[in-house]
Amino acid sequence: MSAMGMLPRDGGAPDGAQVPSPVRERDRVRDAPYPERPDPSPQPSPERERAPGASEAGEAGYNFAYLDEGTKRMIRRAILKAIAVPGYQVPFASREMPMPYGWGTGGVQVTAAILGRADVLKVIDQGADDTTNAVSIRRFFARTSGIATTTRTTAATIIQTRHRIPETPLREGQILVYQVPIPEPLRFLEPRETETRQLHALAEYGAMHVKLYEDISRHGHIATTYAYPVEVAGRYVMDPSPTPKFDNPKMDQSPALQLFGAGRERRIYAVPPYTSVRSLDFEDHPFRVQEFTEPCALCGASGHYLDEVVTDDSGGRMYVCSDTDICETRVAEAAR
């Protein structure tokens, strides 16, 4: 399992030599092109690009991927613990990052800690590669590490995300890094951290269902549409970050490793590959994802999560895929 696979892959790191050899062996395998899914190489620019001016070594004066190696090791230890106890929130010594809280400082630290020179990074915000947050984080890593970036889900080895899971199914070896604002799913009911820890420790999750009960009593159905609580590996209840509940089923038994970083709240948690992730519900109000009545106005896909886009001042609107990569790919394929 890729608990080991995400150990340092930047061979140039000063402490790289201390990593035991089987890990390095696996790293080599992992960094090699995936035989079952060869790079669709003759693709144009979005596939792999380097930031203009960025060297292989990254921005001068900064360590590879910005964070110093000591910090990375501290974060990696937290990540390993998180993987070992799926869904459990591991405290870590979150660092100040050159961006404000709320802009993904948790996710950025996790990504920085696991990034290797051979990695290909994709960053999305609300499913899109071209929003400010996504662009600036992608550029941040391109400049500080010199690694390749991409907008292609299939080409990426690490995908940092805010609010979405790509529509394209993830595969083994890929790592999805979530930016998390509030990691504690019980917080809305229980403001005391000591008490929520106790509740997690004893798996006392009755209160979690109170939230869903309140939804049904108010709206007739479970109206929680994002940050919908899940139970991981039959044990810890976890906040999947503000992703729409539409994406919850994608977390279940995913071949990819999923890591969650909350910078301000100083917590890291994880869902290892092929782990059960069950959305909480009631027997008579089972979990259901959002359904869209019409297909994407651009690529015609149905079964994707759609964003409403206002097109003019007179109330015109259309629904398009929130995942810009899959939408553009489908449009390009259709044009061919």
């Binding site: 009755g206 269902h209 109170v210 009960y213 027997e283």
Partner: peptide, 24 residues
């Protein structure tokens, strides 16, 4: 901040009751 019904139902949910209709 939780409804009266939710307050009464919490202990049932804590005991593993997962049927909204019965809880209510």
């Amino acid at each position: 901040a939780v409804s009266a019904g939710g307050n009464v139902g919490e202990r049932l949910m804590g005991m593993g009751e997962r049927h909204y209709g019965r809880i209510r």
